[in-house]
């Protein structure tokens, strides 16, 4: 091969993200290039460092490509964070990925200095997975301890009157089982690898698969490496990462999420989809999170309100696009 790339990612080689997303994408790039490109995927941080260092590694060219969770480095991707907010992200990863795609050049690009973004995506959204407490209104979460997913996720938990608790992911099953936390804001997709079905009784989401916010992810290349590539190789990457692919990634994460929930339901857990009325009480409780975010990013000169409005509009426009 003329061009080899090291793609560094934090999860294990068997994780759905690698098997169902990164590997097919890498293969598509390789095929598009007529075999001139080779992408080696290094899972589980095998090239060293901790997950928060990934973005720095790709900026510095320590690795060529990364897949990372934007929330590992809070505050570094303020514009993209709009898509993590509850009531902005609702229930549709495909439409949300497409909205990010359509807003990328005009609104989000500034977040990604020093890297060339291949694609961005979200998962299917934070659901509420509770140990033994049935939740139907914000009053039910009041006084509970919930594991936080991201910094805005922590605000969501506060807005529901619960105590945000941080802990390493491997400790989550034990912490749930023993009641160190009463639940977690986390997608269904995490159920199989952590066997969350054994430690929880309730899988709860809002009406019509609406969730309590989300997390954004990126696959990005070192800028200098990108700039050095000939146009046909760039095109091979572009074609593999086109608008259809962003939509496809939404489907991949939706499917992984559905599979996770199925495991929980099959093992006898209670799945609760709240009614529209119940959902509305949650939306009202979480509304201050959006305001807080708008106010905070406006301190750094970002038009948060504009981003939220545009994101909501484009997500609605792209709904049902698949």
């Amino acid at each position: 091969q003329e061009f080899t790339f090291k793609l560094h990612q934090p999860l294990s080689a068997n994780a759905s993200a690698q098997v169902n997303m990164l590997e097919p994408w890498a293969k598509a790039v390789e095929e598009n290039s007529g075999g001139r490109v080779k992408i080696e995927i290094f899972p589980s941080m095998t090239l060293g460092g901790r997950p928060p260092e990934l973005i720095q590694q790709v900026r510095d060219g320590v690795v060529d490509l990364i897949w990372t969770v934007n929330g590992y480095t809070p505050g570094l991707f303020p514009r993209s964070e709009a898509f993590e907010l509850p009531t902005v992200y609702k229930n549709d990863p495909v439409a949300t990925n497409l909205a990010m795609h359509d807003m990328f050049e005009s609104d989000l690009k500034e977040d990604y200095k020093g890297v060339e973004v291949m694609f961005l995506h979200v998962h299917a959204g934070q659901a509420l997975q509770m140990r033994d407490k049935e939740v139907r209104s914000p009053g039910d979460t009041a006084g509970t301890k919930l594991r936080i997913p991201t910094r805005t996720g922590a605000w969501v938990i506060e807005s529901l009157g619960a105590a945000p608790t941080a802990m390493p992911v491997p400790e989550l099953p034990t912490a749930l089982q023993k009641g160190v936390v009463d639940g977690a804001l986390i997608p269904w997709e995490i159920i199989p690898p952590l066997k969350i079905q054994d430690q929880t009784e309730y899988q709860i989401e809002l009406n019509n698969q609406e969730r309590f916010g989300n997390t954004t992810f990126q696959v990005a290349m070192n800028q200098a490496r990108w700039d050095s590539l000939p146009d046909d190789i760039k095109q091979a990457f572009r074609d593999a990462s086109n608008r259809d692919w962003w939509a496809k990634v939404g489907e991949i994460w939706r499917k992984a999420d559905d599979d996770g929930l199925k495991i929980a339901v099959d093992s006898g857990n209670t799945y609760i989809a709240l009614s529209e009325e119940e959902t509305e009480t949650f939306r009202q409780a979480m509304a201050p999170v959006v305001d807080r975010w708008i106010e905070e990013v406006s301190d750094s000169g970002i038009d948060g309100a504009g981003l939220v409005e545009k994101a909501r509009g484009l997500i609605a426009e792209n709904a049902g696009a698949q």
């Binding site: 460092g49 928060p52 260092e53 510095d60």
Partner: peptide
Amino acid sequence: ALMLSQLKTLAYGQFSIY
């Protein structure tokens, strides 16, 4: 270039593992 870059944060990353 590689170690030069990686050492900017590697030690902190290791020392701050929760």
